[in-house]
Simulated assay, not measured.
Amino acid sequence: MAEPQQAHVELVVKDDDDEKKKAAAEEDSGKHVDPATLICDPNLTLNDGKAYVITKRPESSSGKSHSEAAAADPTPIELVADAEEVDLNHCRVATMANFTVLQKAETIGLRNNMITRIEGISQLVGSLRELELYDNQITRIENLDELVNLEILDISFNRLTKIEGLEKLVNLRKLFLVNNKIEVIENLDTLVNLDTLELGANRIRKIENLGHLSKLTQLYLGKNKIAELENLGQLKALTLLSIQSNRIVSMKTGLEELTELDQLYISHNGLQEIEGLEKNVKLTTLDVAGNRIKRLANIEHLQQLEDFWVNDNQVEDWRNLEAVLGKLPALQTLYLERNPVAADPMYRKKLMLIAPKLRQIDATMCRA
């Protein structure tokens, strides 16, 4: 099969001086660059001091020459040297090699492109605060050591296999590495200012190496291969834990030190019983949907619980529901659909009698 043709786009550096822009335009007006002569390798760039050329693959280039493919998308992407926010999402950008020109950029968005390597931004030391590389083809975290002021980094939906190259990013607050091929939580010890860590949809089997993240408030570990709640005790500031779609069969231990926990999402595991929440009295949201729970228990002390998701389980005893739900004065939203009790024709009416303050049962709001 023939390789897809590649078109090219110029990244032009703008200058605020109108006279300079005018002179440059007049000088360049007499020049013509044949797109067929431009670089075709998506990892190479051409820099003549005025125009910054990167490779840009067209949406469809079957049967077209380089010149025809380039002509099909003639509009250049302009890099404004003084821009504080750079948005190049879904532009088929294949390289970052010339991004050093963005000396004032605070935010760079490169979502949904064709970038294979992190490069060209190591000189953006003083300005860059947020870098989004979501949905590219990056295989390694590298060349970020100089970006000591970076606060938000998103390299989700790439091809990473290891957490690395982040040791110098001591001001990082939010790190998103969703949907990669990461197997081990590691190399995060120096990120002491991290408050949000998203590692969902990877290949992680063990919760570990998080003890130094004392400021972490939100931890997302859903859709991995984790079998045990462990090594969470030092995350005293944690308010949200999402560990859905893993292999956990017991929650008896592991959560007792998380006294600030406000939201717990542990749906779609193998739980048979709700337990181990004696110290988590600040919980307002509890999601245990999609498990194997037959009876509600050990939640009567959760006096601040507002949202309780227990749908897709095996709850069948109305007397059990009355004994437990009747002791949750703050309960406003309850999901019980696809449990045996939901087959009762008086299902909604019975629940409203048990918990009069309910505002929503399953996906339907309650009538006043």
Results as ranks from 00 to 15, higher is better:
97 A>I: 02
93 V>F: 05
85 E>N: 08
92 R>T: 08
79 L>R: 00
78 E>Q: 11
109 G>Q: 09
79 L>G: 13
90 H>I: 06
104 K>Q: 13
111 R>K: 11
99 F>I: 07
81 A>R: 14
103 Q>H: 10
107 T>I: 15
95 T>H: 05
90 H>P: 00
111 R>W: 11
90 H>A: 13
89 N>D: 06
103 Q>C: 03
86 V>Y: 03
91 C>A: 14
101 V>K: 08
91 C>M: 14
93 V>E: 02
111 R>E: 12
110 L>C: 04
96 M>K: 08
95 T>A: 13
88 L>D: 02
109 G>W: 08
104 K>A: 11
99 F>K: 02
83 A>Y: 04
102 L>R: 01
79 L>S: 05
106 E>S: 09
76 P>F: 04
87 D>P: 04
88 L>V: 06
76 P>L: 03
92 R>D: 12
97 A>Q: 11
94 A>D: 00
105 A>D: 03
83 A>S: 14
77 I>W: 04
89 N>F: 01
89 N>E: 06
93 V>P: 04
97 A>P: 00
91 C>H: 11
111 R>L: 13
96 M>P: 11
105 A>W: 05
85 E>R: 07
103 Q>E: 15
81 A>H: 09
102 L>G: 06
85 E>D: 09
81 A>P: 00
103 Q>D: 11
95 T>M: 05
80 V>K: 07
110 L>F: 08
99 F>V: 06
77 I>M: 10
93 V>Q: 03
97 A>K: 15
85 E>M: 08
94 A>Q: 09
102 L>A: 10
80 V>H: 06
98 N>D: 14
81 A>V: 13
95 T>R: 05
90 H>V: 09
78 E>V: 15
79 L>P: 01
84 E>S: 11
94 A>M: 07
81 A>D: 10
98 N>V: 15
